[in-house]
Design a protein around this nucleic acid. Structure first.
Length: 472
RNA sequence: GAGCUGAUGGCUGAACGGUAUGGCGCUGAUCUGCAAAAUCAGAAAAUCUGGGUUCAAGUCCCGGUCAGCUCUCCA
């Protein structure tokens, strides 16, 4: 029985799809004006794992992860670089896809982009105006400087939507009391937010009934999710920081526009922290995925992410990445050299334990514990009954694959270095030289070679008269 | 100021109210020429603090301390 924590009720709830056997999930992806950092990696990995597990459970999942490819930060960055905004976003979309692939993140079923969804966005805004949930500032030409062709922004009228605050558990009055932003006089209420932003000269823009402009940040997700998944779908996810105001606003927009419940269950993953502070661009304390990939493999980063429950904060440290590396090596070492059958013993008790862990709000740390228990069993069996060990190993591999781990061939993984790029030929030659020395009982020479390899980051293991190696 | 989380061994992180799971690290043994890997055993070893409920509390309730987060762009 799958239970998932719903941020809206702050409780674990028994999950029940709208249509039996099918799940529609939307996750807020990236705003593509820069490289992915570890926080983005966490969202990618967490919801990829959720999708994999739901599919493993037999659900037919439609996973949509959007790309925000137009907003103020993109425009600013493109201006700084002196390039067209679309050249900038294309570059970072490409980079994101590469990072995601390194992390073992599967391609989502759909990846809608804001700029490719303008008709839907405009339609939804128009509907909101028609239904009295939004207003234009047309004709109000006090206008900001520089907006020669200023025709008007469109704002969402928060007071018109009775349910505002239900996701974040906030009251309108409390929000107003805590208001920190300078009051924008064109808004009827300081909490009203922009749906359509009139373009300044030279800015990228799209036609609309209210003049040239671009969508506000929140409306694109309402439009794209509804468009891809329908008015009412099962799961909406994203980082914790999106709960308010982004997701609150999405609910207000979508439910006002469609008159239906927007989403059944909200999932928010916790932050990545560094020195007990949120990793973020504004604090400038972030590591990009690329930087980390210079030192660690994507799968090691993935393990590091999955070693914590997705709602907990995840502290970054080199030691934890090292830890992930060692732990993952242990699992791969376990699989190494075994002829793993394709079929899996479905009656293995580990499978039930694994499912129990994952059914409990995707408890990946507990699921990993099940994997290590399996590894221990395989290692105990392998000297006694290699066939039984291989059979057990196939359970290990299958379950690990559900987490997106152990998908690489063990030999290949252990030989691959995050840091090195030599092809291993030299290593084989040195190992042969060492084994010759060992045959001659020239331990000094043998150890000298082993130390040399060690300095190259290569660890040797002598077993059954053969020598295998792996990267440290 | 308002609100929300969390606090578990050297580190990390689990645990339907029933004396605490794993991983990493550390010590010893087995194996090995020595290692590594693996297995076995182990460590003066831990539930922030003060109350309460209960036969029984890491787990539920109240207070305190500390930390993080949200209320502003952010995964």
């Amino acid at each position: 029985m799958l239970k998932i924590h719903n941020s809206q009720t702050r409780k674990k709830e028994v999950f029940k799809p709208i249509t039996p056997g099918k799940i529609k999930m939307y996750v807020c992806g990236m705003t593509v004006y820069d490289l992915c950092h570890l926080g983005h990696a966490r969202v990618l990995v967490v919801f990829d794992t959720v999708t994999r597990y739901l599919r493993y459970g037999g659900y037919e999942v439609t996973y949509v992860r959007n790309i925000t490819d137009i907003d103020d930060k993109i425009i600013n960055r493109a201006n700084e670089n002196g390039e067209d905004f679309s050249a900038l976003t294309e570059r970072f979309i490409q980079a994101m896809h590469e990072d995601a692939a390194q992390l073992g993140v599967l391609v989502p079923d759909e990846e809608p982009r804001a700029t490719a969804s303008m008709p839907d966005i405009v339609d939804m805004i128009q509907t909101l105006i028609d239904k009295g949930y939004a207003y234009t500032t047309q004709g109000d030409n006090k206008a900001e400087e520089g907006r020669d062709n200023y025709q008007g922004d469109v704002y969402y009228d928060v007071s018109a939507f009775a349910g505002y605050g239900k996701l974040s558990g906030k009251k309108l009055d409390d929000l107003r009391a805590g208001e920190r932003v300078a009051v924008d006089e064109r808004k009827h209420d300081p909490l009203d937010f922009v749906l359509w932003k009139a373009a300044k000269p030279g800015e990228p823009s799209w036609d609309s009934p209210w003049g040239k402009g671009r969508p506000g940040w929140h409306i694109e997700c309402s439009a794209m999710s509804t468009c891809c998944l329908g008015n009412h779908f099962d799961i909406h996810g994203g980082g914790q920081d999106l709960q308010f105001p982004h997701h609150e606003n999405e609910i207000a927009q979508s439910e006002a526009a469609t008159g239906e419940t927007f989403v059944n269950l909200w999932m928010h993953n916790g932050f990545v922290r560094i020195n007990d502070e949120k990793m973020s661009k504004s604090l400038n304390n972030f590591f990009t995925v690329r930087e980390i990939l210079k030192l660690y493999k994507g799968e090691e980063i993935r393990y590091f992410v999955l070693a914590s429950q997705y709602r907990s904060p995840l502290n970054y440290s080199d030691q934890l990445l090292d830890n992930a590396r060692t732990a993952l090596s242990r699992l791969y070492n376990t699989l190494r050299g075994l002829e793993i059958p394709a079929s899996v013993d479905e009656s293995d008790s580990a499978i039930e334990k694994f499912k129990q862990a994952m059914d409990d709000d995707f408890n990946t740390p507990e699921a990993l514990a099940v994997l290590f228990d399996l590894a221990n069993q395989v290692n105990r069996l392998r000297d006694v009954d290699e066939k039984a060990a291989a059979k057990k190993a196939s359970v290990l591999k299958t379950l690990a694959n559900v987490l997106g781990l152990l998908e690489t061939d063990a030999e290949q993984f252990l030989h691959a270095g995050a840091r090195t790029s030599d092809n291993g030929e030299n290593i084989e030659t040195m190992i042969e030289a060492r084994n010759t020395a060992r045959e001659n009982k020239d331990w000094t020479e043998a150890d000298r070679i082993r130390d040399e390899l060690d300095a190259m980051g290569v660890v040797l293991e002598d077993k059954d008269g053969k020598t295998v190696w792996r990267r440290s």
